[in-house]
Design a binder for these strands. Structure first.
Length: 490
RNA sequence: GCUCCCUUCGUCUAAUGGUUAGGACAUCAGAUUUUCAAUCUGGAAACAGGGGUUCAAUUCCCCUAGGGAGUACCA
């Protein structure tokens, strides 16, 4: 079957092409998300293309669910890729073809060493304090010495002497002694290509010019450079960024920090806040902390990428998210909530089937709510009182506010409210202040019992806004529920 | 073990061969206030250690310590 070049043939000279190349063995984690962001930013900043390649050649570990999770994660972060994703596995024949070409040109050779043999070799090298590299035992042997019908792998004939230099945009000039870079297998004994070959071939065919990736690939960059050189292809510009660590400085693991971006969505973070936070992990633009995606694109460059690893800090993310929530319009937040609600477990969500009227009420309450929420989840929690049914369940701390005096004040205020024509926050506030004065108490002594009666809690948006948003009937009802002298506190 | 990389307040980071080493988050104190937030003011808080080079080093070089990555017929 003829191989079709998807991008290589149409790559414009001088045009930047970046890519994100995750392997679909799990969700899109935070480090991957940042890598994707940087590549995306670089493409946007240079007017180039941002491509996506799914490295699914490990058939036992790759899953369709993971592919979906990664695409989902990228979409949520609004990191849109150009064109269709390239699936590496589908290009296996092309990779094998290049391996055979290398073999034919004498730049690769057949290796008949068995896995046991290789293991013994490594053991020995380790014991002697040398790098556990392949010793090249089949490198220069005559084909006639090959065992008949024995399986073989194809190894790349890497230079033995000298050094390989990776000119890295982030790490600088990194030099590797060639003696430590052994002849890696490019074609397994079952004829399938291996990672380092596939990556080189794909990046070349896709016309990739710039590669920003985790520094766990730095050594690979050296090996890949050798393959590029053997093939006579241009080596892309590399930028190897340090990995993100967990809050305790240790490697990210499932126990701490290594969550899929979907988890961040469910914790109520906004994509824009996420991008902003991620951008500040390992990249900076002077003292700027909060900036729009447009500014990010304008400012982004590999020069300001840091070399030292960073830790993931939830407190800062949360703070940033709070900024974004406060800055968002009410309509935007309503939209974000509508998107998020279906993804949340019932106990963290709002009642199902909110009516249009409910949504309107929520939007009306939004200015007061968003001021107090650091995440959408907190926003939801803060909004819960809006949809509570009478008689309200009163939280313990709120119940303490509702002592007999407080209930008497509520009764008095309830009566004043009956005669209030201007049911606006300002009108209600004026009434409350007058009431407090008449009673000879501080405003707070009326406001807090009111809060308890109206929301069942001790914390809420401004209480006059609460009355206003709830509407006259509901508000008066809730006050009455708590003001009635015969009713018990619980 | 071997190869490579890293090290500025608790965290993310800025800057510089000569600075009171800056900002942000977190933290503490105060102001404001109907609660909580938000906001405002102020405080505490860092150049890992040791050698050099230099008139001068946080900055350049070396060593040590600590951290990270790689070391597969995984990606």
């Amino acid at each position: 079957m003829p191989f079709i070049l998807t991008y290589g043939t149409c790559a414009m000279p001088g045009k930047v092409v970046t890519r994100f190349a995750p392997s679909p063995t799990g969700f899109l984690h935070i480090g991957g998300a940042r890598t994707a962001l940087f590549n995306w930013l670089y493409a946007k900043a240079t007017g180039g293309q941002f491509l996506l390649r799914i490295e699914d050649t490990d058939r036992t570990r790759s899953t369709d669910a993971a592919v979906e999770a990664i695409l989902d994660g990228l979409r949520w972060l609004e990191l849109n890729w150009d064109g269709e994703p390239v699936f590496q596995f589908a290009r296996m024949d092309r990779h094998a073809e290049i391996a055979r070409q290398l073999l034919a040109e004498g730049k690769a050779y057949r290796c008949y060493a068995t896995p046991e043999e290789l293991e013994a070799m490594r053991e020995k090298a380790r014991a002697e304090g040398r790098s556990p590299v392949y010793d090249g035992r089949w490198r220069d042997r005559d084909p006639s010495e090959a065992p008949k019908d024995a399986p073989f792998a194809v190894r790349f004939k890497a230079p033995n002497e000298g050094e390989t230099v990776v000119d890295d945009k982030v790490q600088g000039r990194v030099t590797f002694p060639n003696k430590d870079l052994d002849d890696l297998i490019i074609l397994r004994s079952d004829g399938t290509p291996t990672y380092n070959l596939s990556v080189v071939v794909d990046d070349h065919d896709m016309g990739v010019t710039h590669i920003i990736r985790g520094d766990d690939h730095l050594t690979n960059a050296a090996r890949q450079s050798q393959i590029y050189a053997a093939l006579g292809w241009d080596i892309p510009v590399f930028g190897h960024i340090p990995l993100i660590h967990g809050p305790d400085g240790a490697k990210m693991s499932k126990r701490h920090g290594a969550l899929g971006v979907g988890a961040y969505r469910e914790m109520g973070y906004l994509p824009a806040a996420m991008r902003n936070y991620l951008a500040r992990l390992g990249w900076s633009h002077g003292d700027d902390e909060i900036f729009s995606t447009a500014q990010m694109i304008e400012w982004f460059g590999t020069d300001a990428l840091g070399k030292s690893p960073s830790r993931f800090d939830f407190a800062k993310l949360e703070n940033l998210n709070g900024h974004y929530i406060r800055a968002a319009s009410d309509a935007e937040l309503i939209a974000a909530l509508r998107d998020l609600l279906p993804h949340l477990p019932a106990d963290k969500s709002l009642p199902a089937n909110l009516s249009d009227e409910d949504w309107r009420r929520l939007e009306l309450a939004m200015p007061g709510l968003k001021e107090r929420a650091k995440t959408l989840v907190e926003l939801i929690d803060g909004a819960r009182f809006l949809f509570a049914k009478r008689p309200l369940k009163i939280e313990e701390k709120a119940a303490k506010l509702l002592n007999p005096e407080a209930r008497a004040r509520l009764a008095a205020f309830h009566d004043s409210l009956l005669g209030l024509n201007d049911w606006s926050a300002a009108g209600i506030e004026a009434a409350a202040r007058a009431q407090a004065e008449a009673l000879g108490i501080k405003l707070g002594d009326l406001a807090q019992p009111l809060r308890a009666a109206l929301t069942g809690r001790t914390v809420s948006p401004g209480i006059f806004d609460v009355l206003f948003v709830l509407g006259r009937e509901e508000a008066l009802g809730r006050i009455e529920d708590q003001a009635a002298p015969v009713k018990t506190a619980e």
